[in-house]
Amino acid sequence: MSHHDIEGPPCSHMEHMLHDAADGTGRGLRLWYALHHAARCGRCGRFLSRLRETLSAMRQAKPEPEADAMARLKAGRWRDEMSAEE
């Protein structure tokens, strides 16, 4: 079954495959089927494109840790442990 409208949830049997297609873990026939279905089903097509946008936004929005904290951690007591090994 596929939907002509774009509002509403994706087809329930497709949701896992759409998640996998969106984040790049989908492979082979499952990926082909997900993309093929999404191209014809309005809801699944919109779901896939929105999920991809959201994942892309998350990957690009990694907050940079505070520089002072990084410097303190790089000079932390783990260095003593490594020196003791040598």
Partner: peptide, 11 residues
């Protein structure tokens, strides 16, 4: 659903 989001989501 996901359709309600976007409008240029800020990461």
């Amino acid at each position: 659903y996901w359709q309600a989001i976007d409008w240029g989501i800020v990461g």
